[in-house]
Structure formats: structure tokens, C-alpha cells
Nucleic acid binder design. Structure first.
Length: 460
RNA sequence: GGUGCGUUAGCAAAUCGGUUAUGCCCCGGAUUGCAAAUCCGGUUAGCCCAGUUCGACUCUGGGACGCACCUCCA
């Protein structure tokens, strides 16, 4: 029985899909004008984990994660670079895919781009206008009339009064209410032709919020199960989506709203505006991508996650332990791809209970460590296979253990030569020479481990 | 100012009204030529103040501190 913390209810709720066998989920993706940072990595990994768990539970999942490829920042960046927005966005979409692939993030079923759904957006705006919820302002923008939508603020728990009280400087004066937001932005002369679309309200381009409402409806229907995104999107983005979709379709938009916590640096939110962000590709130069994925999944998705080298080092050591347990299973059944979870087994039952409790991956990973202990103790191949299979549910432990532990390096031949030399010294009972070789390798980050079967090595 | 979330051992991070979280670090033992890995065992908790309770880290109330949102942001 899967329970999900629903932001709308501020409580964990039993998950009941609209269609008994299917889950339809939408996650707000990236605005592609730069490389993804660790905060983006967290959304991708977290909802990839959710996607995988739904599938592991036997659901037919339709997962949509959009791409915002039209927006002020994109237009500005393209103009700075003196290139078309299409070229710019395509470059960063490709980069995003490389980063996501490295992190073991499966591609969503659909990755709609905003620019390809403008007709749907226009249709939705027209419907809002017909329903009396949108108006054409004097400056040529079409705005959403927030006060006309009953229940505005139900997701973020804010009342219009509270919002107005804390309102920061609002320059635009053509809005009927300062909290009204733009559905359609009128075209500006200096902007390129490729960012202008025709509409009954004149040339222009869509506002940010309408993108998700239109793409969500088009690909998942007017009413679907899950909508996710970073906690910062709760307000105003998701609040506005609700206003748009429910205002246009006159039915409930989404049943369960899920929001992941931020990645922090020195206890502050990692963000572009603060400039304290690390791009995924930067981090991957220093750390294995699976270590980064493990680091993200080791915290609960709603908790804040502090990024630091020390924490990544810690994650690397922890993951080493799991792979070390898997090492024994290797070789014995090479290529035997039977990494299927036995869900009737005790550890799997604990694992499932953790995951069913609002995707409690830290608890699920704790089960993995308990199971690793069992593997080490019993040397049971079944237990090892189960460990690998359960790890696989989280998109972890999929690699060859030895390959993971030894990591990438060009001096493998040298290492093997040194091991051979050391073994010769050991045979000759020349332990000081043997220890000298081992020390020398250790200085290069190579650890030797003697066993009955011979000497193994790994990188620290 | 308004709203929401959080505060667990050296670090990270879960669960739970009474029984070992887990990982890293540290200490002891087994194992090893010595190590490493592994196993066994151990030390370090629950921001503060009240209350409820036979019993609270876990529930209730108050306080302190931290973070986030109220503007684009994953």
C-alpha cells in the first residue's frame, strides 16, 4: 500500500490511481539555457526513482517531463551569444541528456518542448478568456485574473491577502491585480522572429505557467495522478497551473502534488541567482556518477540535502561497502542475468515497506546495508543476487563490482606488475619489500587485499 | 511582516510512545606474515522549558535557532 506525501493535503495519503493499472505523472523539467546543476540532478534522480518504483509496483506509467525552450532568459542568452534560440536550446538539451544518462536517469516517456505546443496553449488561453478568467491588458499581454479563481492559494497555503501584504515591488501596472500573471506576452520589436507566434490577441509568446498546463493536459489528460517538481515551484508556478487547468477544464487537475527539497551549499539553497551552484558535469569530473546518485537517494526526497566534498566522499565509501559485498557473487555466475527481486524474501519485504512509505529511500538503503552484511556473513549467492536486484530498483549496483571498485585508470598494467612483484617477495618471505610495494601503491590510492584466491586491488 | 518546513550521537541520515536504525569516523576482539576487506563487540544521540503518560527522541503547548516561499528559480 503506497503512501505519498501530498502537498495539497500536507499529509501522507494512500495512493489510489485514477486508472487502477496506470499512473500518469508530470514533472516540471528544465529551462534549457545553461548546464544543469546539482539541484536539477536531484529532481531528475528523485522522480526517476519514483518512476522506477511505480513500475516495480506493476503500474503502467506514463511519465512526462517537459522542457522549457522559450523564456526570457533563453532569449537573452541567445541574443548575447548571437545565435538562434533553437541552436542554443538544442545544445543544452543534448547536454542535459548526457548528464541524466550518466546519473542513471531513465528517459521519461515524453519530453515535450514548449515551442511545440503553442497551439494547445493558445486554445487553453481562449478557453480561460471564455470562462471569464483571462483578459487582454492595455499593454497587449493576456493575463490571468487571479481573484476570479476560487481556491487560488490552496496548494501553497497562501491567501490572496497574505500574498498582497508581503508583495514586493510590482512594476507592471496593466494588471487588474498585482498577483495576476501573464498567459500570453505580446511580441517586442527587438526580439527575433522565431520567438513570435500569431494569435487572436496579436503576435507574441506564451507565459511560463501555461506551458505546463497545456502540455500536461495534452499528454496526460485534464485530470491526472501525480505532478512533481522542486519545492520552489509550489508558488507561484504550480498554484498558477492549478488556476489555469481547473479554470479551463472545470475539473480537478492533479490528485497528488509531490515536491522535492533543495540541494544546499553551506546551508543555503543552491541556485543560479546565488551563484553557489555546481554543474553536474563539474561534479562528475571528481566523483563517479553512481556515487552522486547514491548521495541523492540516501536522503529523503523532501529533506534538504547539503552538498560538500566530505559528504560525497562519505557516500563513495558507503557505496564501496555495497559493491564489496557483491564482489563475492561475481565470477560464480557471470552473465547469469537473473537479477530479479524475490519479493517474498524478508529483506525485500522491508525494502518495499520503506519505499511504500512515501518513497523512504534512506530506509530502503539501510535495508541494503543489512542485506550486504548478510551476504558477507553467509556468502550466499541468493542473498547477493537479491542485493543487486534491490539496488537495481533504485538504479544502483548495476555495474560489475570489480569494475566499480577499481574505477577508471590507465595504469592497470603497472598495478598488476607490482602485485606480481609483491607476491614474489612474499613467497621469498621478503616482507619488507612486499610491504614497501603495498605502501607505494597505497600512496597512489591503490589498496591491495590479499585473500585465499589471490590479491585483489581497488581504488580508494 | 505573512506562510510553511526543520532542529537526532564526531559527520551524514531514518524509524518509532517502552526493544540494535543504517553508513562514515573512532575503540576492542577474531582473521592476516603484517595489512586491507570481512565478521563479532563497543563508545558518541534526540535544541530549551513545561505538560500528557506507568513510560516521550517520538504526543500537546510555549520558546530559541536555522532554512525556504511570498520575484525567475529544480
Amino acid at each position: 500500500m503506497l503512501k505519498i506525501y501530498n502537498t495539497l493535503a500536507r499529509d501522507k495519503q494512500l495512493f489510489v490511481p485514477i486508472d487502477p493499472n496506470a499512473v500518469r505523472m508530470y514533472v516540471c523539467g528544465m529551462t534549457v539555457y545553461d548546464y544543469c546543476h546539482l539541484g536539477h540532478a536531484r529532481v531528475m534522480v528523485v522522480f526517476d526513482m519514483v518512476y522506477r518504483w511505480f513500475k516495480a509496483c506493476g503500474y503502467n506509467v506514463n511519465y512526462v517531463r517537459n522542457i522549457t525552450d522559450i523564456d526570457d532568459k533563453i532569449i537573452r542568452r541567445a541574443s548575447e551569444n548571437n545565435e538562434s534560440i533553437h541552436i542554443l536550446t538544442q545544445r543544452f538539451i543534448d547536454a542535459m541528456h548526457l548528464d541524466a544518462d550518466a546519473l542513471g536517469v531513465q528517459r521519461p516517456d515524453h519530453e515535450p518542448r514548449a515551442t511545440q505546443y503553442v497551439p494547445e496553449m493558445l486554445e487553453m488561453i481562449a478557453r480561460l478568456e471564455a470562462n471569464g478568467l483571462a483578459y487582454l491588458a492595455a499593454d497587449g499581454d493576456v493575463n490571468y485574473s487571479v481573484r476570479k479563481f476560487e481556491g487560488y492559494g490552496k496548494l501553497s497555503g497562501k491567501s490572496l491577502e497574505d500574498l498582497r501584504a508581503g508583495e514586493r515591488v510590482e512594476v507592471t501596472s496593466d494588471k487588474q491585480d498585482p498577483l495576476d500573471f501573464v498567459l500570453w506576452k505580446h511580441a517586442k520589436e527587438e526580439e527575433a522572429e522565431e520567438v513570435k507566434w500569431d494569435s487572436k490577441w496579436g503576435r507574441g509568446r506564451p507565459g511560463w505557467h501555461i506551458e505546463c498546463s497545456a502540455m500536461g493536459s495534452k499528454l496526460l489528460g485534464d485530470h491526472f495522478d501525480i505532478h512533481g517538481g522542486g519545492a520552489d515551484l509550489q508558488f507561484p508556478h504550480h498554484e498558477n497551473e492549478i488556476a489555469q487547468s481547473e479554470g479551463a477544464h472545470q475539473c480537478q487537475y492533479v490528485n497528488y502534488w509531490m515536491h522535492n527539497g533543495f540541494v544546499r551549499v553551506d546551508n543555503e539553497k543552491m541556485s543560479k541567482s546565488l551563484g553557489n551552484f555546481f554543474t553536474i558535469r563539474e561534479v562528475l569530473k571528481q566523483y563517479d556518477a553512481e556515487v552522486v546518485r547514491f548521495f541523492i537517494l540516501r536522503a529523503h526526497y523532501r529533506s534538504p540535502l547539503n552538498y560538500s566534498d566530505a559528504h560525497l566522499d562519505d557516500a563513495k565509501k558507503a557505496l564501496d561497502r555495497l559493491y564489496t559485498a557483491l564482489k563475492s557473487e561475481e565470477g560464480r555466475e557471470k552473465g547469469e542475468g537473473s537479477v530479479v527481486v524475490d519479493w517474498n524474501e524478508a529483506y525485500a519485504i522491508r525494502f518495499k515497506a520503506a519505499m511504500d512509505d512515501d518513497f523512504n529511500t534512506p530506509e530502503a538503503i539501510a535495508v541494503l546495508f543489512d542485506l550486504a552484511n548478510e551476504v558477507n556473513r553467509s556468502q550466499s549467492e541468493d542473498a547477493a543476487r537479491q542485493l543487486k536486484a534491490l539496488g537495481g530498483v533504485l538504479g544502483l549496483l548495476g555495474r560489475d563490482a570489480t569494475e566499480f571498485l577499481q574505477g577508471a585508470g590507465s595504469d592497470d598494467g603497472m598495478i598488476l606488475e607490482q602485485i606480481a612483484a609483491r607476491n614474489a617477495a612474499k613467497l621469498a618471505k621478503n616482507y619488507s619489500e612486499a610491504d614497501r610495494i603495498r605502501q607505494a601503491l597505497l600512496a597512489d590510492g591503490i589498496v591491495l587485499e590479499d585473500s585465499a584466491a589471490g590479491t585483489n586491488w581497488r581504488r580508494v
